[in-house]
Amino acid sequence: MADTPTLDRRNVVARLLADRGELLVVAGLGAPAWDCTAAGDHPLTFPLWGGMGAAAMMGLGLARAQPGRRVLVITGDGEMLMGLGSLATIGVQAPGNLAVVVLDNERYGETGMQATATAHGVDLAATALACRFRSAAVVRTESELAAALGPIRTAPGPLLCQVKIRADKLALVLPPREGAQLKNRFREALLGPRAFA
């Protein structure tokens, strides 16, 4: 396969979330949620602790409910592969405000670093394009990442960015884990008093 990835996942996510403004974030379960938390726990980040395969669909629902806000899903390759059909649904719904970043270490990190399909050449960016995403790319280098950061925030969606990252096992940085609390703080930060009307 291609060269061993060099990008560090925590650095990638910290840059994705720097000066995030009004960005709404869904973090896929496992390491992507820890990466988002390491970048700074935030009420407008919804970290998933379960529901594997559902991160992109949660992003779609949020993007449809909040068409005036940018929605960013940050998830892993294993999680995205489990919900591959959601790419077709997103492509057809075509939310212009949705971006999906797949942190691709080509491993199932939470269960012992077993190889995923991306380790065997499955191309999620090409899959997204075939599913009618507006744009999609594989990012392998620092310069490609730097070029992708702007479009991830502002380019018309749906957009998918598959970022090849090193298969590191990093220290856990856990977000709060009570689901109703995570939902309520997100809704309150987004809707204000209307959240509980």
Partner: peptide
Amino acid sequence: NILAMMKSCG
């Protein structure tokens, strides 16, 4: 599994 998430988050 998704219904479980619904329940966990209300």
